[in-house]
Amino acid sequence: MEGGVSELHITQFGIYKITDCADFVFPNTEIKIKRISERVFSYLRKNHDDEIVEKIIPTQSNELTIEICPIRPINYPAKRTSYVYLDLETPIFLSEGSAATIFVRCPVEIGLFLIHDGQKDSLDWFTCDPEHSRFGLYGSPESGTLCKYAKSEIVESYYDSIPFVNGVMEMNIQNELSGGHSISKIIFPITDHSLYYRDSKTIISSLNAVLKKKLTLEVLDISQKSIQTDWVLSPSYESAEPVKRMDMGVD
């Protein structure tokens, strides 16, 4: 979506051209952008606790172009990890040799990018669900992996995400072990995944999870899988860092 009117009241993701002023309304968060003088805009974000973030944005013209889009959920309250821990509210049971494709919700944050000269600079980011944006530890305190933690529900399709709060990810699970197993949690590096948006909904690139045996250990082997979609690809907020893939134990 692209707009270019002088006063905007925006409630969806997209690219917007602001010439005078614009209001963005998200759950728990309001954003106001307005032109305060020639080639200078002000940016103000207020969340439900009345915390305010203010910025002045000098521009090259009397028009400000921004993109509002979902970003990976690893920046609030601080960037500490690249992993996400999805705690499935209903575990999935896979019998021996079976496979399943499910859709799960995964939290997202929202990024604002300033578009100029063909490039996108991150201007600000926030979460619409700060109370559920928390950390969790996978493994022991001595050698475990710190993750962003979220309870996750299994849904029916890509369209079942909660606007601005989470996105939907397709998960292909396969059981190559002898005997049936329940899967109640998935830990994966979210920095491997791309996010796509349409209106106020988000989808996240797919995940392949294979229950298999590595030497004597039973592990859940996770890998990212690209998807073909006509939804818009979100720019990355954080710099991409190589992250080691982790063998998650089956329990």
């Binding site: 309250p77 700060p130 950390f135 969790g136 933690y149």
Partner: peptide, 12 residues
């Protein structure tokens, strides 16, 4: 704690 201390881990 869950409401006002975002750095406290949910697990453990």
């Amino acid at each position: 704690i869950r409401k006002s201390l975002p750095f406290v881990l949910m697990i453990p």
